[in-house]
Amino acid sequence: MPDFTKPHALTDVPFHYCPGCTHGIVHRLVAEVIDEMGIEGDTIGICPVGCSVMAYDYFNCDMIEAAHGRAPAVATGVKRANPDKFVFTYQGDGDLAAIGTAETIHAATRGENITVIFINNTTYGMTGGQMAPTTLPGQVTQTTPYGRNTNVEGFPVKVCEILSQISGVALAERVTVTDPANIRKAKAAIRKGFEFQKNKQGFSLIEVLSTCPTNWGKSPVESLEWLKENMIPYYPLGVYKEGAVR
């Protein structure tokens, strides 16, 4: 029987996320993995700047709020000083793949023993729906009002594909949380990331294709459909790299 009690690794603070946003699901999956591995007391989480900026209030483990894009560097600082602790970052697409590209790539190249939860919803959500590095060609946002024109704004960043080329990466996997089957796969991927970390086997990143109903101007259900029809073809799900680096 499925367990619908709240994981211990989540606090009782109510989420501030919009109705239909998938952040809540992913938070819960991370918390379930922490509970199942019994590592809450040994885990330090790093929040990004973006919609999940206040995740420090939601997770029950020790939490640090990083500057925009710098979470992998902050995580490196924590991990190098405390190699036996679990360290994860939780970052959005703007944070991880635009302003924090260097920090992401170099934490990966070092094979930093951390787990990165990467929420890709093609949007800068917190600032009100501007173009993200992952915004699809033709997609309308506040700063691409006529649709993302690849001649002007260039092309979306495919994070898992890039990371698959980097030697320090133990896991690069893209998942989604549109339905129970995918949610289970997403949780398994997150668990895998933490296991790699437990065994000190390298950098792990789990990219979760997510929705932003508010800024997409769609209902939660329409958003899930839009994700399946538009995002998955551009960002195919699956394992891009898997295997211990060390």
Partner: peptide
């Protein structure tokens, strides 16, 4: 930029 943020993380953990 990364170096000072590593310091931020490390200092957060009390080291």
């Amino acid at each position: 930029v990364a170096a000072i943020n590593m310091v931020y993380g490390c200092a957060s953990s009390g080291i």
